[in-house]
Amino acid sequence: MTVPEASVAVELERLRGTVATGIAEIKGSLSVLVERSARHEQDLIQLREETQKDIDALRVDVEALKRNRWPLAAIGALTGVAGAATGLVSLLSR
């Protein structure tokens, strides 16, 4: 082996080491990203469950409010009839 071939071999070995190091760094970065993605997915699932529980609780509250509300239409009709009756009584009593 001559000197130029030796230097080429050394440079190729150095390049191989650099590529191997780069690939190892990429694998490490990908592992971190996969772990973060899995953690975010778990957080999202938990958030969805909590949100659904809150929505269900609000639905129960709304249904309770609907059941306990005053029948405003009936009260308005009764008030109108009472007013008309009062007016009629005062008109006839003159």
Rank of each mutant, 00 (worst) to 15 (best):
L30C: 07
V19K: 06
L15C: 09
S7A: 12
Q52F: 03
R48P: 00
E63G: 02
G22H: 00
K53C: 02
I55P: 00
L33Q: 11
G83E: 01
G28M: 03
R39S: 11
V8E: 14
T21R: 08
I55C: 03
V3I: 15
P4K: 00
D56M: 03
E41T: 15
A24N: 09
A9G: 09
A24Q: 09
G76T: 03
T18Q: 15
D43S: 10
D61V: 08
A24P: 03
L92Q: 12
P71C: 04
P71F: 02
Q52H: 10
A74C: 06
L58I: 12
E63L: 09
V62T: 13
T86W: 04
D54M: 09
S93T: 14
A24R: 05
A64H: 10
W70T: 14
L58V: 11
E13R: 02
A82K: 01
R39I: 08
S7L: 15
G22N: 06
A20E: 15
E63R: 06
I26K: 04
E11V: 04
E63W: 02
E41H: 15
D61W: 01
W70N: 10
V32F: 02
R36T: 13
S90H: 07
G22A: 04
L91R: 05
G80H: 05
R14E: 13
A82P: 00
L12P: 00
S31N: 11
D43N: 09
R67W: 04
T86C: 07
S31Y: 03
I75E: 09
L65M: 14
L44K: 02
T2M: 11
L44Y: 02
A6N: 08
G17I: 03
R36F: 05
K27S: 13
L12S: 06
E35C: 07
R48M: 03
R39E: 08
G28Q: 07
V89I: 11
E49V: 08
A77C: 11
Q46I: 11
L33I: 14
E41K: 15
A85L: 14
R48D: 10
A20F: 03
K66G: 03
V3R: 01
E41Y: 07
H40N: 13
L47E: 14
D43Y: 03
Q46L: 14
S7W: 11
V8K: 05
L12T: 05
K53S: 11
